[in-house]
Computed example of a mutant assay.
Amino acid sequence: MNESILYPLFFTPIYQYRLWGGRRLTNLLTEPLPKGPVGEAWILSDRDDYASVVNAGIYKGYTLTQLFEQYPESIMGKLAGQFDRFPLLLKFLDAQEVLSVQVHPSDDQKEYIPKGDTGKTEAWFVIESGPKAKIYAGLTPGTTEQDLRKGLADHRVADYIHCFVPKPGDGVFIHSGTVHTLADVVVFEVQENSDTTYRLYDWDRTDAKTGKPRELQVDEALACIDFNLTDIDPVKPKDITTGKVIREEYFNNEHFIMWRMHTTDKFTVGAEDEPRILVCTEGNGELNFNGTKYPVKKGDVVLLPAEIGVINCIPQGKINLLEIAIPDTNK
């Protein structure tokens, strides 16, 4: 194909085994889960090892990587040339059990980032919370490296991490350098396109597949911690409602901007000359583009290429829809 004829692009989720996972992603996604604990569904990924595949239309079977390389201006618009690959990685997480206590490096900590990767700032939107739900985010004020090393020796690392009980609709911003973990929740995660994680502590458990503890990277994790990032609580969304369409801005940083719309009324999504990503967390509706209707249901992720511009979303009943933008790094 010499030129693109792009449209709203839907993708098949990529399931990932995780020892802390469960089966609750069946409540979100129609694609059957593999056997065993499923901790993650990568729903938009431009990674060498796991690239998302378009599941409908003339580009069915194409990967996001192929489309990004073949049609960079059509996909990215005014952002074309700013990134070597699609800059965000989107996931659903089912943390049936608690994840390891971990930290991600910042973009400027080059010595702790594998070649070709970046730092990792991320954010969570809570979809479901269980009876043992808990989010750990940020250290308790005054915690030092010596405190954490002692906590490791005493198996009491959690004593030095701020925690709270999350509820559906909470948004949590995890800047690179933040010590964090979560348990008994299903969340949507948006992050830099990076897979660099350093485990500080794993609750002294063993991996059922190997019968051995998972590897820790204590020195690297400690080196990447920003000890000023303490007491991280849910964000307070900024209300930018217009008319009957409730619209809230959850996150706005140098890597991503995210809004939530929840309404029964028609509203617009997308933007002129820049890509947008839509994630439906509740309800269903349809997108209208170029005379064609594209049904959207709970669990769907949709990439709106830049060349599409602004289009209408028409809910069928009430819909909860997340919209994600990529900031212009040239501004």
Rank of each mutant, 00 (worst) to 15 (best):
D239S: 04
Y15R: 03
L303Y: 06
Y71V: 04
G317Q: 07
G151R: 08
I319S: 02
S4Q: 02
R149W: 08
F11L: 11
G177H: 10
N290D: 15
T268H: 11
L67R: 00
L200P: 02
F256S: 01
Y7W: 04
L322H: 09
F10L: 09
Y198A: 02
T30L: 12
D49R: 14
S100H: 08
M261P: 00
F256E: 03
K120D: 06
T65E: 12
R47W: 12
T143C: 05
F68Q: 03
I14D: 05
N330R: 11
V269M: 01
D49C: 00
Y62G: 02
K236R: 12
E128V: 03
D328K: 02
P168A: 13
M258D: 01
T144Y: 10
E128T: 07
L44V: 08
T241P: 02
E220H: 13
P72V: 08
H262G: 00
Q96E: 14
L90I: 14
F251K: 01
Q109R: 09
E122Q: 13
T268F: 09
Y71L: 04
N288T: 13
L28C: 03
D273T: 04
P72W: 11
R85E: 14
P114E: 07
V103I: 10
I5H: 12
I5C: 05
Q96D: 13
P168F: 13
Q217M: 10
D107C: 06
H175G: 11
V38M: 09
G211A: 12
K238Q: 14
M76V: 07
Q16E: 15
S74R: 11
